[in-house]
Computed example of a mutant assay.
Amino acid sequence: MPWRSTLLLAVFVVVGSGFASRGQPDRESLDALGRTLLLAGSALLLLRHRHPVPVVFGVAAATLAYVAAGYAHGPVFLTVAVGCYAAIVHGHRYAAWGALASLWLGNLLIGHWLYPHLPPDGDTAAAWGREIPVAAFVVAILAASELVGVRREQWAQQRAERAAAEKRRADEERLRIARELHDVLAHSISVINVQAGVGLALLDSDPEQARTALTAIRTASKEALGEVRQVLAALRAPGEAPRAPAPGLDRLPELVEQARSAGLTVETRSEGEPVPLPPGTGLAAFRIVQEALTNVVRHSGSRTARVVLAYAPGRLELRIDDEGPATVIAAGADGSGHGLAGMRERAAALGGTIEAGARPDGGFRVRAVLPFRPKETP
């Protein structure tokens, strides 16, 4: 409740009206009734934020009663200005206009037609020229209130837009982190799962091969933990430079080796003239190949995959194929799974595309086109 500002306004209006009364001896002296009307109008302003419409009409009525009682004009009209401002900034401009119009018309009636029947005795009709500053005052109140109301609406809209942008950035960051964690963990856990199966199967018959599988599990888990720590470190300290560079296609041999340890043979081929990729494009390409190979390990009956990197001016095309059979591909390979959804999000963030589906001759293909701007060499 804005009681401090209302109290200050009430004191100013009462004291100022007292001075105005002494300066206008032809009007009624400010007595108890006049002070009561002044305080009533000011007291109504305590509710101007909760009930702006009744307040603006109530203040206008109290002010009109004050004028009709023949008291001197003065700062009493400030209460009307505050009431109109509160109504407009709360979205009730028509109520403010109506209250001001009622006050102005009432003032016209009192000053030009009803004055013989109202105090003070012997009062004469008001000069029509006096209505010009009154009208100007009304227009000024409306204009100032509208201006402030519009500015407040603009500020509220800007705050809402900033809040929406911050929420959007937070959502995008959560999605990015979830995508990174999915890609890291899905690939590493798939390798670990395959190697654990091999180790269990060969534990008694071929301990040396089982040891090799356990070594591969340790290597895959160590790399996964390192990447998870990097992602979580970026989450805990947003805005700081990462301690380790983001993975790119320079780490493709590591993916091939991990796939080989899971029993998958990967053939790689490069077409066109390789060029350095921006970090974002390199990371997206690495994760797309990683997820595609993970899907082959987890869902395909094939033990062979082919990765083609086709460089063209301003774009990189990735093709990851396996022999299938396509009927063995698990549900979600049609694009409804989280992995392929993450691929599409990565490609879309760069303005690229992803196509994934069964090949006409059997098997499965993931094809990604990633546009990029070549890195400038110093």
Rank of each mutant, 00 (worst) to 15 (best):
V297L: 10
A125W: 04
L103D: 02
T124E: 12
V139R: 02
R236M: 05
Q290V: 02
L109G: 04
W128A: 10
L114M: 13
V55Q: 02
T327E: 11
G352D: 07
T281C: 03
L78S: 08
R260Y: 00
G18S: 00
R22Q: 07
R287C: 09
L108Y: 07
R359A: 15
T265A: 15
V80S: 09
A165D: 09
K222R: 14
H73D: 13
Q290Y: 08
A246M: 10
L33Y: 04
Q230H: 11
L100Q: 01
A43F: 00
G91R: 01
H117D: 12
G272K: 02
P54S: 15
A237P: 14
V82S: 03
Y71M: 09
G83E: 02
Q154F: 13
I88V: 06
R373Q: 14
E376N: 09
G83W: 03
S145Y: 02
G335R: 00
E345T: 14
S190N: 14
A213Q: 08
A246G: 04
G357R: 10
G352Y: 06
V134G: 05
G74P: 05
S300A: 13
G337M: 00
G363L: 04
R159W: 01
M1L: 06
E161T: 12
T268P: 02
V296T: 12
G18I: 00
R211L: 06
L30H: 11
V328T: 10
D322N: 13
G357P: 05
A331D: 08
G74W: 05
L203K: 13
H51A: 15
G301E: 05
L309K: 05
G272C: 02
A213T: 06
T377M: 14
A331N: 11
P25W: 01
R344K: 15
Q158F: 11
I217G: 01
A86L: 04
G352S: 09
R260S: 00
V328P: 00
L340W: 03
A284W: 02
I354H: 04
L181A: 10
A284G: 12
Q157M: 03
A43M: 01
F137M: 09
G248S: 12
P360M: 04
R130F: 01
S21G: 02
I88W: 04
L318P: 07
R367E: 00
A237F: 12
A72V: 10
L9A: 06
A69Q: 11
N107M: 11
A262P: 00
V307R: 05
E345Q: 15
L202S: 12
V15C: 03
T215H: 06
L202E: 15
L30S: 08
V139C: 01
A234E: 04
A87S: 05
A127Y: 03
E317V: 07
E28C: 11
R211W: 11
R306T: 06
F77R: 09
V369H: 04
R162Y: 03
G362Q: 03
A326I: 10
G280Q: 07
R130H: 10
A156R: 15
L175D: 11
D183H: 15
E227I: 07
V266N: 13
V139F: 01
A96I: 00
D121Q: 15
E172D: 08
A237Y: 07
L30V: 08
